[in-house]
Design a protein around this nucleic acid. Structure first.
Lengths: 163, 163
DNA sequence: TTGGATTATTTCGTATGCGAAGTTTTTGGT
DNA sequence: ACCAAAAACTTCGCATACGAAATAATCCAA
């Protein structure tokens, strides 16, 4: 048995699973609408400020800028966000919710809030989880990955099905 | 402003972000080794029982069987798991860690446990998070998604950059 | 000022995940 | 026993994510 780490267990069995459970819920709820989990999160993040650069948004959402870039482009063509170059600094892209985007976000928020209302998770539970997870995330972002060295591979057994 | 739901906030801002923070950590730690976050989780899940069918594994990992299927195939060619048809029921695939798989898992566990050791998250913190998240996951899996209907799209403004 | 860093964004290749649809094997009702 | 329904996997098309590398705009130090 390898060394034990409760934080590792948390990551592999709880956070991973919960993330995908949420993902399946949002995917089902937004099906056919063109909205997705990722795009919904972007809308929510953009709603916290009047405008944001692409990298500020990526910080807010917690993913890399190259993940946001194509999504923002698509969302602009859908009309939910405005996407323009910053006149002050032509490298920057400035993003902002459109009036339509605000309406879409509102409609989505309503549906989700309704679906999540009677699941037995109180606001206090959720708040506690928010505080705890927030702390854990800060910690994990500080982790310095050391390279894994794998043991010698075995004499290629290939014990299995042809395909 | 749409209706508020703390559980929705938890999903969109905390769980989503923490999942990706963990993902980036494991990706960096396992870089070059051929191991990935998803494959590592599969190894850990398989270590909990002497053997498992593909669908039992998918249940244990918390994703759909069609996600596990190609991963299991690849992992068998890497020699970390054994993958054979169940003689009792030829529809089933039986999966089991190989000796090499056990070694790989052990090596990975060591590295992660070491990297996660001094981040300021106690085992008690992690345990508390495990209990709380476990409860939340059960609840979310019960949520019945109702279809989102988007408001009328605006007269296609397309106010943006050419590309 | 001017040319090499630095910063912001984009593009590219790879790896997951999901639902839907297809294939093979087992089950069950008659 | 026989065939339709169910169950277990697999395949397919689409949508994220990431790191690495490319591109474009700014900064800055000699």
């Amino acid at each position: 048995m390898g060394k034990k780490s409760k934080l590792n267990d948390l990551a592999c069995f709880q956070v991973y699973t919960l993330h995908h459970a949420f993902g399946r819920y949002y995917q089902a709820a937004f099906a056919e609408s063109g909205l997705t989990y990722a795009k919904y999160i972007i809308l929510k993040a953009l709603a916290t400020q009047s405008q944001m650069s692409l990298s500020e948004l990526s910080q807010g959402v917690g993913v890399e800028p190259n993940t946001i870039s194509p999504l923002a482009k698509k969302m602009a063509t859908y009309g939910v966000i405005e996407r323009v170059r910053d006149a002050e600094d032509e490298r920057r892209i400035v993003l902002r919710l459109t009036e339509y985007g605000i309406q879409v976000l509102k409609a989505a928020d309503e549906v989700v809030a309704e679906n999540f209302a009677d699941l037995g998770i109180s606001d206090n539970d959720a708040k506690q989880a928010i505080a705890l997870i927030s702390r854990i995330r800060s910690a994990v972002e500080k982790a310095k990955p050391s390279r894994l060295n794998l043991p010698q591979a075995p004499p290629n057994v290939q014990d299995g099905l042809p395909d």
